[in-house]
């Protein structure tokens, strides 16, 4: 179950010289995964996730999503696949279109054949999950702030009740408080529902704090797939793919070099680093 890729290749144009996905194999569990896909612009991150809910189809290799083999074939129904895997695009606030927030969130479940009553129930539940004020539901989505609109778009994806939720750069353009609020909300939702969450992100501080597993894309290849600890301790790999350390890890390394602190495992968040600094002195 979940998502499985075996040797997946993809090119946007048949004659294109390089592949957008190049021999990608991966396996994503349907429960409790919190994955970050990182890599530079143009590395294939968005192309990769669009294969995960059958918006794009592999040129070769196999993709299985919840026991359904995904191929470009009219006999295969794509709706059940998209019911399993929900995808929230970058800047989803540009995609809200209904007259009220509630209608907008109800669009997904209605599209998947739910009755109006049930769709409304699912929409209200989803809006509670993302922490939208009830009084906002009757307003036009266009009167909301950027952060609120993004919550509406995420609620829209959640109302379909997918098993796996993918978000393409969910925190871009939000202010620092909005970023943390959104990530805390995803984390709380996962603790409650155990849905797997996949985010595309460039923000290593967010990646280090909230995700467990990291996939690094480079020129269409999946060049790293492992724990965040394994990635951030692999200096050669970070250098090769020009990836930043989380701020706390950078500070920790510098402080260690100055002999001001010592540690066995590299701290990745400011909480971990604070603990090391304060904990150190206890042992002296």
């Amino acid at each position: 179950m979940g998502i499985n890729f075996q040797n997946v290749d993809f090119k946007y144009a048949k004659k294109a010289s390089h592949k957008q996905l190049d021999n990608v194999s991966l396996n994503i569990d349907e429960k409790d995964e919190f994955i970050a896909i990182v890599g530079h612009t143009g590395s294939g991150k968005s192309t990769l996730v669009q294969h995960m809910n059958a918006l794009l189809f592999a040129n070769s290799g196999n993709i299985t999503i919840f026991d359904t083999k995904v191929v470009r074939n009219k006999k295969i129904k794509l709706k059940p696949i998209r019911k399993h895997v929900g995808l929230v695009f970058q800047f989803p606030e540009y995609q809200v279109f209904e007259t009220t927030v509630l209608d907008d969130i109800m669009f997904g479940p209605k599209n998947f054949g739910k009755t109006t009553d049930l769709a409304k129930e699912l929409a209200i539940k989803a809006s509670q999950l993302v922490g939208l004020d009830e009084e906002l539901l009757t307003r036009s989505p266009f009167t909301l702030s950027g952060g609120q609109m993004r919550k509406v778009a995420i609620a829209g994806a959640l109302a379909i009740d997918p098993d796996i939720l993918i978000l393409d750069e969910p925190t871009v353009g939000l202010d620092p408080k909005g970023k943390i609020e959104l990530m805390e909300l995803l984390l709380a939702m996962q603790n409650k529902t155990h849905k797997s969450i996949i985010i595309i992100s460039h923000d290593m501080n967010i990646v280090a704090k909230y995700t467990k597993r990291i996939m690094v894309m480079h020129s269409g290849k999946l060049v790293f797939d492992g724990s965040k600890e394994a990635l951030f301790n692999n200096e050669a790999l970070l250098k090769e793919y020009n990836l930043d350390l989380p701020t706390a890890a950078y500070l920790a390394k510098e402080l260690k070099a100055m002999h001001l602190i010592d540690y066995d495992s590299l701290p990745l968040t400011k909480e971990e680093l604070t603990h090391i600094i304060l904990g150190d002195s206890c042992n002296e």
């Binding site: 408080k177 701020t247 500070l251 400011k270 604070t274 002195s281």
Partner: peptide, 21 residues
């Protein structure tokens, strides 16, 4: 509504402590 830079946030924590000399 601004988020402190990690390094500065850590300084703030350290300044409160009596654990360090």
């Amino acid at each position: 509504g601004l988020k402190l830079i990690d390094g500065i946030a850590i300084i703030k924590e350290i300044e409160k402590t009596s654990l360090l000399s």
